[in-house]
Write a protein that binds this DNA or RNA. Structure first.
Lengths: 147, 147
DNA sequence: AAAATAAAGGATATTTTTGTCCTTAATTAT
DNA sequence: ATAATTAAGGACAAAAATATCCTTTATTTT
């Protein structure tokens, strides 16, 4: 469904959300290892997600690394797709027609319409935080100890 | 969602289903023009779909061309994806994890599960013929005159 | 101030996807 | 038989996606 770059972006962001905080940043080495992605390629992707006050925050130098602000945690997953310039795939025609609409539907339009809507809703309404918490329910992270 | 090659494969097959019969075959020129795809590239794709008694039938020489047997018309759209080696995308994990299952779910698994099932059902239960007929309801083809 | 650390950024390489062109093979009509 | 037509197939080209490496910049520690 998505490019590898976008898959890495999603995995990395969720991982950072789970394991980091402003006090406990994560290095690219750890992130790439954890999400099983090529390090340098992942670094480029994080650059994109970090650029101009983006989704991920970063600090250089010793003790530096990547983290997610609590504000960023509340952003919808779709924002990640947007930065990766792949949010288009959600609304796109399955047959790849540029002009496919209610007025000019492709042969699959009627059948696919409902699924498309659900996809858009899913990525729009799900926040990064929700996914991070879901993941923690299954394999608890050690970001914060539970009392 | 799918590669261009697969989009062309779907569009071409549906077009052939609508406009051709064993008595009235279509040439690559017409097909490519109709579905707005590069001719030679589309030819390669039709070769794939034609190979070893595949979905599309073809005959060389004058009066030759491509057509769909009535048996092929009844095949599910998923068969096209299979030939294009992209039926995998339907069942694939959204985050691209190789091992994502009920037992080892990715963070999006629960949320995406239902949509994935609908996608599989859609491509499995919809036949080429159904799409061709849907399309004809909107823009009637001239394959057979209506009395 | 110097050294060490970690992300940012540029340049380049590799692989895959997309696309084109030309020749070959099969079939039909002359 | 020969010529014409049309798909099959091979070789190659271009573009995009994926991946690596090296240098630079910011920050902290010594």
């Amino acid at each position: 469904m998505f490019s590898k770059a976008t898959e890495y972006a999603l995995r990395a962001t969720i991982y950072i959300a789970r394991k980091s905080s402003e006090e406990n940043k994560l290095g690219i080495e750890e992130i790439a290892k954890a999400i099983n992605s090529p390090k340098s390629f992942t670094a480029k992707i994080l650059q994109k997600l970090t650029a101009n006050n983006g989704i991920i925050s970063s600090v250089r130098g010793p003790g530096g690394g990547f983290y997610l602000s609590s504000k960023a945690q509340k952003r919808p997953v779709r924002d990640i797709l947007h930065v990766m310039e792949e949010d288009g795939v959600l609304g796109k025609c399955v047959l790849g027609l540029k002009k496919c609409s209610e007025a000019m539907p492709c042969p699959m339009h009627a059948e696919y319409k409902g699924i498309k809507q659900q996809l858009i809703q899913l990525f729009e309404h799900t926040t990064i935080q929700q996914l991070a918490r879901d993941a923690d329910k299954i394999i608890p992270s050690n970001k914060q100890g539970r009392h």
